[in-house]
């Protein structure tokens, strides 16, 4: 194996039986720039978002907060001379001391929704959380708008992300392959597989837009400008809950995404998203459109 693409060995017995490893330019610069700005923005927005949540660690459904009936609440109770963290989910509750409701800050148990390692490393107050959150919200939105225009005009959306009917029929096979950690090889590795396409599309077209819309619904100014937002999400408190759920579904996507990066080959995948170049083993006959 080598980083340098080699011509087929002329001494090889049968060209068809010989494969060669080539480095292919797979990920375009625009996609890589978007990916990393997006990743950075989402990281800061997750940490600052959980910090904002900590100012009132409870979720409700509807226009206003029904304080007695939260969907989710992280509370602290005095038990003897210590604190116990209790997380309420609907009608159930769980002791979550150390993680949710009560966790340690500088060695002392305090009332906190999420623990300090899940919020910004310093400046863990509501005001700082809001400042960082809204700053990166703008970066995220502008970056996303540029990227979206690029994938539509540059046909990345239809050409590379949109699945064909034939691919959709292959979903069960693809699920089975993923469960066995079997990844496409050769030419097929140069394209997104169908589950990958569906996951990316779900995030790009559903989760991230929902994130922006529910975020806007929490803004009293935006509610005056677009009252339809409140109607769409059933109220400001519902929108806050959906915003929270979307944030954690992005975390879920991220964990699977990172797992797949390792499963498919960490160094090759990282090279691809950093430099655009991806190493792939191809049959001896040159593949059209794949520079060697």
């Amino acid at each position: 194996m080598s980083d340098i693409a080699l011509d087929p060995d002329p001494a090889a017995p049968s060209p068809a039986a010989v494969s060669r490893t080539v480095v292919v330019y797979r990920t375009k610069l625009m996609v890589r720039i978007w990916h990393w700005i997006n990743a950075l923005s989402l990281l800061f927005m997750l940490l600052s978002g959980l910090q904002i949540f900590n100012a009132h660690p409870a979720l409700y459904w509807g226009q206003a907060a029904n304080f007695d009936h939260p969907i989710l609440a992280m509370r602290a109770y005095h038990v003897g001379d210590t604190l116990r963290g209790v997380t309420f989910v609907g009608k159930s509750h769980f002791t979550t001391t150390g993680l949710f409701g009560v966790s340690k800050v500088a060695g002392h148990l305090v009332h906190r929704g999420f623990p300090s390692w899940l919020t910004l490393p310093t400046g863990q107050d509501l005001a700082s959380g809001r400042r960082w959150h809204f700053f990166f919200a703008w970066i995220f939105a502008i970056n996303g708008a540029v990227y979206f225009a690029y994938i539509v005009i540059g046909r990345h959306l239809r050409g590379d992300l949109w699945p064909t009917v034939a691919e959709l029929k292959g979903v069960p096979q693809s699920i089975w392959d993923h469960l066995r950690f079997k990844h496409p090889e050769g030419e097929a590795a140069l394209k997104f597989n169908v589950l990958q396409k569906l996951a990316y599309l779900a995030v790009l077209l559903i989760i991230l837009p929902l994130m922006i819309l529910t975020g806007m619904t929490m803004s009293p100014g935006m509610d005056a400008a677009f009252p339809g937002l409140l109607w769409a999400f059933g109220g400001r408190q519902s929108a806050r809950t959906v915003h929270f759920l979307c944030a954690w579904s992005i975390v879920g996507f991220f964990l699977i995404h990172i797992f797949e990066v390792f499963a498919a080959g960490f160094f090759n995948e990282m090279r691809s998203i950093l430099t655009g170049r991806f190493k792939v083993t191809l049959p001896a006959a040159p593949v059209e459109g794949a520079p060697s």
Binding site: R131, F134, P220, A224, A225
Partner: peptide, 23 residues
């Protein structure tokens, strides 16, 4: 980081007409 406030204010002022009512 704090400059985001000015951007938010200007954009919301642009979108919100002066008489637009809160729900």
């Amino acid at each position: 980081v704090y400059s985001a406030e000015g951007l938010t204010r200007r954009v919301q002022r642009l979108i919100l007409s002066p008489g637009q009512l809160a729900p």
